[in-house]
């Protein structure tokens, strides 16, 4: 499915590239990722993850924070977050800093 999906290390830091913006969509409700000629409507999970992407915290720290906030098993969150971020990198709406 994702032949060239990068393997993301826990120490990797990701960020939104110029031209990609996260914002609330008040008219329709929820949050969106705005990219060149594209709008991604985010589910609540994606929003929680992306709102923690600040170009400073590494993936491990983001996962720690999510595990604490949602009292969920860290390993499972790590797997989900990695898969989601790798997919966004492939779509070019996220980059490794």
């Amino acid at each position: 499915m994702n032949p060239s999906a990068p393997a993301l290390a826990e120490e990797a830091i990701v960020r939104l590239p110029r031209g990609v913006r996260l914002r609330e969509d008040k008219a329709r409700g929820g949050w969106v990722l705005l990219a060149p000629e594209r709008v991604f409507q985010l589910d609540p999970v994606a929003r929680e993850v992306l709102s923690r992407v600040d170009g400073e915290r590494d993936i491990g720290a983001i996962v720690d924070d999510l595990a604490a906030a949602f009292a969920a098993p860290r390993e499972r969150i790590l797997g989900d977050v990695r898969a989601m971020l790798a997919d966004l990198i492939l779509k070019q709406v996220l980059e490794v800093a």
Binding site: N2, P3, S4, A5, P6, P36, E37, L90, Q92
Partner: peptide, 11 residues
């Protein structure tokens, strides 16, 4: 598109 996935988005 397949060859350049992750490098160039082709619409």
């Amino acid at each position: 598109r397949e060859r350049l996935a992750g490098k160039l988005v082709i619409d």
